[in-house]
Simulated assay, not measured.
Amino acid sequence: MPKNKGGGGGGGKAKGGKDKSADSGSGETKKKEAKGGTAVKIENRALGTAKTNNPRLTAEERFFIVKTFYKTDNKSETCRRFQEKFNRTVKRDTVGRLVQRFESTGSCEDLPRPGRPKSVCTFEKTQIIRAAFAENPQKSTRQASQEFGISQRSIVRMLHDVKRQ
């Protein structure tokens, strides 16, 4: 078995067959010489570079996609023009789904999401409760619950949050 040339242990394989040099943290793709002299491509996935994080499309971007698709009647051309204008990419499937949603609902906006509704403990309601108890500190949470149409537990939760501030 041939010995390693070039010194003690900086560039060889780590335990388990993984290349130590791929863990540099730079997020770059590197080339490494394999046994037969061929270059092997090694990607560093430590920073999660495999996926990109695209933010949601704005209303202006959605409108542009639908309008451009109806002008060109071509998803690929719509994607190209979108990239020219907004300097970000959009997939052909996204264009298709947006156009389909526009045709079925007449709008480019998202449909309401299922699930638990928003909490009743909004900033405005908390301010109202705070003012009511500042005016009359002897008021009971049961009275406030009936007066404001908010559950007693929510009133207690709002008052508890007020104490922390």
Rank of each mutant, 00 (worst) to 15 (best):
R130T: 11
K41Q: 12
N53Y: 12
F63C: 01
K71T: 08
K3P: 05
S145D: 00
F82S: 00
R153F: 05
V66M: 04
F123S: 09
T52N: 11
F82A: 02
I42C: 05
N74K: 01
A39R: 10
P117R: 15
S104E: 15
R113T: 08
E147R: 09
F82H: 02
M1Y: 11
I129V: 15
G36F: 09
R142D: 04
D110A: 13
I155W: 06
E43D: 07
D93N: 13
S24C: 15
E33I: 04
D73W: 07
R113A: 08
N54L: 09
R130W: 01
V66E: 03
L111P: 00
T38L: 10
Q127D: 09
R101S: 11
E84D: 13
A134H: 09
K20D: 01
T29N: 07
V99P: 07
N4G: 03
T105V: 08
I42A: 00
R130I: 00
G96M: 09
A22I: 12
A132I: 14
S154D: 15
K15R: 10
E33Q: 14
S104I: 05
I65V: 15
D23Y: 15
A131Y: 01
T105G: 01
T68Y: 10
Q100M: 00
R157V: 03
T68E: 15
G48K: 03
K139Y: 00
Q152F: 01
K118M: 05
S26V: 02
D73E: 15
N136Y: 06
T49Q: 14
K118A: 13
R153Y: 09
K18L: 08
T72H: 08
P137K: 04
K67A: 14
E109Y: 03
D93E: 11
V40H: 06
G11N: 08
K3G: 07
Y70C: 09
